[in-house]
Every structure is written in structure tokens, then in C-alpha cells.
Design a protein around this nucleic acid. Structure first.
Length: 139
DNA sequence: CTTCTCACA
DNA sequence: TGTGAGAA
């Protein structure tokens, strides 16, 4: 039956630090009211915080989350909000696919480099031409 | 306990 | 994307 929450309550409920919540406010994702200089979070702020955390789990940036949430607040245009969210998710998916591609390229590069190293070791061993022993210089 | 700011990965 | 410290 609560209609307001302190920052400590919300941080405990959602398992985030109070500082993270203040950080979200700095980023413009939440706009709690103030009683004196203390933050007062409404149930709506609480919902927004939940949305923020959800967005993060999916890998959206805070900026992207803010866009979606702002849209939700301004218009109550659920269709528009869902379309915007869909757009964000689509971009997120493409970014992940690109990352996967980059990783594959790196893995291939590492694989061939490993092969070269192994080949070099075998050649040196068979030819008896071992590399010169490393020496430590003393001052 | 809370606030803010500055610095830092 | 947050954290830590320090001061109020």
C-alpha cells in the first residue's frame, strides 16, 4: 500500500546500489521528486527502475533505455513504445551478430598463428637449431 | 541514513 | 556504466 519509496528501499528491492540509482537519475532515466533534499520515488518511478533493469539485461544502453521509457511516459502510446523497443532490440541483435563475426575472425587468426608457432618449434627441434639461451644482464 | 562532487577504471 | 572517497 505504499505510494512512495526511499532510495534505500528501492536499492534493496532491486539489488542495485543507491549510487547506481542516483546515476540513472543523472542520466535522465528516472526523475524522482524531492522532499527537502531527499529523493522520493513514486510507484511509477519504481516501475521505471524495473524497466531500466530489464533493458540492461537485454543489453540495451542507458541511452536506448531512456528513449524507450521517455516515449512510454510522454505519450502512453503503447504501440509506439513497442515499435521503438522492437527497433532497439533489432539493432541490438545486429550488434551481437557483428560481434560474433569479429570473434570468429579473431579465433581463425589465433588458430593459424598457433599453427605457425607449432610449425616453427618442430622445425627448430628437428634441425637442432635451438634458439640462443636467454641471459640475464646484471648491473 | 542521505546529499553532492571529483576522480577513476 | 558505474564505484570510491570525502565532506556535509
Amino acid at each position: 500500500m505504499k505510494n512512495s519509496y526511499t532510495i534505500a528501499e528501492l536499492s534493496a528491492e532491486f539489488g542495485v546500489t543507491a549510487r547506481a540509482i542516483r546515476f540513472y537519475e543523472d542520466r535522465g532515466l528516472i526523475v524522482p521528486t524531492r522532499k527537502g533534499n531527499r529523493r522520493v520515488f513514486s510507484p511509477r518511478d519504481r516501475v521505471r527502475l524495473r524497466l531500466i533493469l530489464r533493458g540492461k539485461r537485454v543489453g540495451l544502453t542507458l541511452d536506448e533505455i531512456r528513449e524507450v521509457i521517455d516515449f512510454y511516459d510522454v505519450g502512453q502510446d503503447e504501440i509506439g513504445q513497442l515499435q521503438l523497443l522492437l527497433d532497439k532490440l533489432r539493432h541490438r541483435r545486429e550488434a551481437l551478430l557483428a560481434q560474433r563475426h569479429d570473434i570468429d575472425v579473431l579465433l581463425d587468426a589465433l588458430e593459424s598463428l598457433e599453427a605457425n608457432c607449432t610449425e616453427g618449434l618442430i622445425a627448430l627441434r628437428d634441425g637442432g637449431k635451438l634458439p640462443p639461451k636467454l641471459t640475464v644482464t646484471s648491473s
